[in-house]
């Protein structure tokens, strides 16, 4: 008899194996189109996993996560833009084509942004927290909408920045797919280590009962801020990959409805499971891609489905595989 824990482990392994084989199968089948499609999905999965760290494990309902995604994407876009124009950002920061510099820079900027937004937002909780994260994200969104130097509302198109470490050609669909896949595996591995560490336990404790954690002597605010900043950095990395993939970036990537999409991915797959958001991203983005083929108005079906999921199946796809958590698996 297979226990439910094994069942979920087998499911994850099968999923990862399928994703690993996808470019090969797609190339043989002559459907290279799917490679780019799934690369996009993996990138959003990374963003969704980073949201799961604070939403699923930390119980922080952030409705502004897309801001970090967008900030990371813009860092890459701006650096490459300046490199090809041979100008400097703000007059002194030179651009670069090298992803090994641009991607970490994107993580750094997103982390800094998350730190400052978290600094204010995490003083509040409940509804206030939801709305403040939303409002801050909207603020970042408008900064880029009105920043004419980088295309403003129309977005910024750029060329280059797709040679990693001087020899890995990200312009090659398959190569870039495996780079993204490797990043995803890295994020999953480190995420797994993180949530099982003492730090992860404290974050989960804050979700279950923050007052008790404080009474136990944990500086919960600092723990939550650290988690929030980390999640921002990983979302920034996803944004950087996204910018490199698209060679184009516009503020629409950080519209607040995008943050809503990310939450949907996390819930759809199963919150607080790390692998769940990956499943959720695959399911959500495949629906977004292929349902319009059947009906142009797929959202009129998807909206009510979302309501039904919330009402009746809130543990998500992954929730069916995992055993019920002690205490009902609820979140705060």
């Amino acid at each position: 008899m297979i226990s439910s824990l094994d069942r979920s482990r087998i499911f994850v392994l099968l999923l990862l194996a399928a994703l690993a084989l996808l470019p090969i199968v797609a190339t043989i089948g002559g459907e290279e189109f799917y490679i780019g499609q799934f690369r996009r999905i993996l990138i959003f999965a990374i963003a969704a996993i980073s949201l799961d760290l604070i939403l699923g494990y930390g119980g922080m309902v952030s409705l502004g996560h897309a801001a970090f995604l967008g900030a990371g994407a813009y860092v890459v876009a701006i650096l490459v833009h300046h490199a090809s124009e041979e100008t400097r950002f703000l007059g002194f920061i030179p651009g670069t084509f090298e992803p090994l510099i641009a991607w970490p820079a994107a993580m750094l900027v997103s982390a800094a942004l998350a730190f400052f937004i978290g600094l204010v937002s995490l003083r509040t909780s409940g509804v206030y927290f939801i709305m403040i994260t939303l409002a801050f994200a909207q603020m970042v969104y408008y900064v880029f909408v009105s920043w004419r130097a980088y295309g403003g509302d129309d977005g910024l198109r750029f060329r280059g920045g797709d040679t990693l470490a001087g020899f890995i050609d990200l312009g090659n669909d398959v190569v870039f797919y495996y780079v993204v896949f490797a990043v995803l595996l890295g994020v999953l591995y480190l995420g797994q280590r993180l949530v099982k560490s003492r730090f992860g336990r404290v974050i989960e404790g804050c979700r279950e009962n923050e007052r008790r954690m404080r009474a136990l002597g944990f500086p919960t605010y600092r723990y939550k801020l650290t988690a929030f900043t980390l999640a921002g950095a990983v979302a920034g990395l996803a944004g950087a990959l996204f910018a490199t993939q698209e060679s184009y970036i516009s503020p629409s990537i950080m519209h607040w409805t995008r943050s809503g999409d990310l939450i949907i991915m996390v819930i759809l797959g199963g919150m607080g499971t790390l692998y769940g958001p990956l499943v959720g991203a695959v399911v959500f983005m495949l629906m977004e891609k292929f349902l319009p083929d059947y009906t142009q108005h797929w959202q009129i079906v998807f909206g009510p489905i979302l309501v039904l999921i919330v009402l009746f199946a809130r543990r998500g796809v992954f929730g069916w595989l995992l055993p019920a958590r002690p205490g009902g698996g609820g979140h705060g």
């Binding site: 309902v61 409705l63 939801i130 409805t257 809503g260 939450i263 949907i264 819930i267 998807f302 909206g303 009510p304 489905i305 979302l306 309501v307 999921i309 919330v310 009402l311």
Partner: peptide
């Protein structure tokens, strides 16, 4: 948040 997002 999720359900009302679905309603939107």
């Amino acid at each position: 948040v999720l359900a009302t997002f679905g309603l939107i």
